[in-house]
């Protein structure tokens, strides 16, 4: 558990809802849910979620902080936007789910080995190197994320997929040597670094 987590627990002792309002992107919408359940019924992946959006909202109001932030559920969102399109109260549910995921990651509460969370990190790291995603390296990083032995197994299993992608010119083996990128990745990294500094100072201020 991070320092940030401990200080947030201290600060919002009685109301997780208020914590969500203050710290989660679009979190101020959570209180407007009227528990009709249309979002849960509309989610194409709903049955794979431990807690569909309607329940997540109710759990936030019921102060179930650890259960929500440690949940696998909001990581399951595929951003299909069905729930947003259908919510009679106009809640940006997809955005709230991503907001909750980001917040849980910031506090270090994301479940270990959560595949979507891991993929997101690998994707980000890959992107930041050259400002463009390197598909070959991204694929390899995903295959080998759990060590060399697992990596070989994964690579064998995905062999056919890789070949097809190369045939369709979706993946270039030459990418292994450097690969493509933006004109000056260094400048991009500076921009991102500055943005992260601003965000970090906000987070510290919110403690």
């Amino acid at each position: 558990m991070s320092d940030l987590n401990t200080s947030m627990i201290e600060k919002y002792r009685s109301s997780f809802l208020k914590e969500v309002e203050a710290n989660v992107e679009e979190g101020e919408w959570v209180k407007m849910c009227m528990q009709c359940g249309v979002c849960s019924g509309s989610c194409p992946l709903g049955k794979h979620w431990d807690h569909p959006p309607q329940e997540i909202f109710m759990m936030i109001r019921a102060n179930k902080r650890e259960e929500v932030l440690g949940s696998d559920s909001m990581w399951m969102c595929t951003s299909c936007y069905n729930c947003i399109a259908r919510c009679p109260r106009g809640l940006p549910i997809t955005h709230i789910m991503h907001g909750l995921a980001v917040y849980s990651k910031r506090l270090g509460l994301t479940p270990k080995k959560q595949p979507t969370a891991e993929f997101s990190q690998i994707f980000w790291d890959n992107l930041m190197k050259k400002g463009r995603v390197n598909e070959l390296k991204l694929g390899l990083s995903m295959n080998f994320k759990d060590g060399f032995g697992e990596g070989v197994k994964n690579a064998m299993a995905n062999q056919k997929l890789g070949q097809n992608m190369m045939k369709a010119k979706r993946m270039n083996p030459m990418e292994a040597f450097g690969g493509h990128g933006v004109k000056s990745p260094g400048d991009l990294q500076k921009i991102i670094k500055k943005a992260q500094e601003i965000e970090e100072s906000k987070i510290q201020a919110a403690k």
Binding site: L17, K31, Q35, M58, R61
Partner: peptide, 11 residues
């Protein structure tokens, strides 16, 4: 909605 905006919790 006004009640919800005012942070009344509806359970």
């Amino acid at each position: 909605r006004a009640g919800q905006q005012a942070m009344v919790t509806f359970s």
